[in-house]
């Protein structure tokens, strides 16, 4: 490899890294905004083992491992305050 081709390889890698970073920013920002838009809204959660619940969304931790919710309607009654593990959830939905 000559110096010029080495240089172009380095800049190509830098450009590629920058594109990936910009992509990650766009994807993450939109997801974080969707979580903010969900605050205070009723959300339906489809969980594993065919369990379905609804609750008012409160907040998520930044690693998206836990959702803090209120007024959780479970098959066995209402739990006023709860935390759902994201690993238990298959999908969730709400209306905007």
């Amino acid at each position: 490899l000559g110096p010029s081709s080495l240089f172009s390889k380095v800049t190509a890698n830098a450009a590629e890294l920058e594109r990936e970073q910009q992509g990650r920013v766009a994807l993450r920002e939109r997801y974080l905004r969707s979580l903010l838009a969900m605050v205070g809204r009723p959300v339906s959660f489809t969980m594993y083992e065919k369990v379905s619940v609804t609750a008012l969304f409160g907040a998520s931790d930044i690693d998206v491992l836990n959702f803090q919710v209120s007024e959780l309607q479970t098959p066995l009654g209402v739990q006023k305050e709860a935390v759902l593990r994201c690993s238990d959830i298959v999908a969730y939905s709400f209306e905007l």
């Binding site: 369990v51 803090q68 919710v69 959780l72 479970t74 305050e81 709860a82 935390v83 238990d88």
Partner: peptide, 8 residues
């Protein structure tokens, strides 16, 4: 503030 418990 709310001291939520894990569910389930």
């Amino acid at each position: 503030k709310k001291q939520p418990k894990y569910w389930p």
